[in-house]
């Protein structure tokens, strides 16, 4: 019984949150990786694109909520997601036409594109704050839990509860769905293959008659979808504040690089490595020991490897370590 309690504890505080946060990071990292492998630059504006997607979902949710149109028990944001995705794609495409296209035609160095993306980041960040303001926005509605701690305790008779928040369930399911569709697209469709070909060898792709502008268009469409979904899910799960999305860029970059930039599978693995490391390193193990060891062996203190205050810093530490030991990442990515 004690062991089961201990396992429930791990599931509840590490496994489910890790899966959720990992999915959010993985979706973000996929966006960064895809832009990198096709357009050859690190897109610092990606966090703001996610924020833009979340903002679109919020505004649309409010609109539908005011008409009392919803899909209870699921949050309204999930219902309006397709429209929000369209808005985000449109924004990405407009930015590409007005900004990035020029540098693509000039064949600018990747570092110039990186600085350009910082300009886009500033502008988008300002635009978003101008539209919804800088404050905290909660747009969650619907049923809060798929599984309540009390229900779980009643069913199993354990001391420890297991909860599954609606946002966590939705995040995990939607991410799995999106990733499956993405991989099907990249590996099985003609357009997806042409994208991979373009990212592999641009000159030869041109010789083969692959239309570069079409590849770029598809790239931004995928980026828009990933950014909007990731941003909305993160906002639903943790509440939306424009400021936090700037800070999300770094863990996302860490995930992409740790997995191997330019490699979609790597981006997903990287997202989960970062998410689980953060949770495992900052978890207080006292209670676990309590369940697994006889009472006289349980040590004093919280038994935390690192204080929770350092949670986000862990992703940077992992990033630095990976860059030092294996800059190509876990899965061999393209070297920047």
């Amino acid at each position: 019984m004690d062991y089961l309690n201990g396992i429930t504890l791990i599931l509840n505080y590490i496994f489910i949150p890790g899966l959720t946060y990992g999915s959010q990071l993985a979706l973000g990292a996929l966006g960064i990786t895809i832009v990198y492998s096709v357009l050859r630059f690190s897109n610092f504006a990606h966090g703001e694109f996610m924020s833009f997607g979340a903002m679109s979902s919020i505004l649309l949710s409010w609109l539908f909520m005011s008409f009392e149109i919803n899909i209870h028990p699921l949050p309204t944001a999930i219902m309006v997601l397709p429209i929000a995705v369209l808005l985000t794609i449109t924004y990405c495409l407009i930015v590409d036409r007005l900004v990035f296209k020029f540098y693509r035609q000039q064949n600018s160095k990747s570092v110039i594109n990186l600085i350009v993306s910082i300009g886009v980041m500033f502008f988008t960040g300002g635009l978003i704050r101008f539209i919804v303001g800088p404050g905290d926005r909660n747009f969650f509605d619907g049923e809060r839990f798929f599984l309540k701690a009390r229900t779980f305790k009643n069913i199993t008779g354990l001391n420890e509860g297991l909860t599954l928040k609606t946002t966590q369930g939705v995040t995990i399911l939607l991410s799995v769905f999106l990733v499956i569709v993405l991989f099907w697209f990249l590996n099985k469709t003609k357009t997806g293959k042409s994208m991979r070909a373009y990212s592999d060898n641009k000159e030869l792709a041109l010789l083969s008659g692959i239309n570069p502008e079409k590849v770029v268009l598809i790239t931004w469409i995928i980026t828009g979808i990933l950014a909007c979904v990731a941003g909305t899910l993160y906002g639903l799960d943790k509440s939306y504040k424009p400021f936090t999305y700037l800070h999300l860029v770094l863990p996302i970059f860490s995930a992409a690089i740790v997995g191997g930039v330019g490699n979609p599978i790597g981006a997903i693995i990287g997202g989960f490595v970062i998410a689980f490391s953060e949770l495992i390193i900052t978890f207080a193990y006292k209670k676990i020991f309590f369940y697994f060891l006889p009472a006289y062996l349980v040590p004093e203190g919280l038994l935390q490897i690192l204080s929770t205050d350092y949670k986000i810093a862990i992703s940077f530490v992992i990033l630095v370590i990976v860059l030092l030991i294996k800059p190509t990442g876990i899965y061999k990515g393209k070297i920047l």
Binding site: K190, S194, R196, A197, N201, S208, G209
Partner: peptide, 19 residues
């Protein structure tokens, strides 16, 4: 640089017939 290294052989050939 006359192949797509991360595509399979079959996919390389398919890309040749892209048009």
């Amino acid at each position: 640089n006359n192949i797509f290294p991360s595509l399979t052989v079959k996919e390389n050939l398919e890309m040749g017939a892209f048009i």
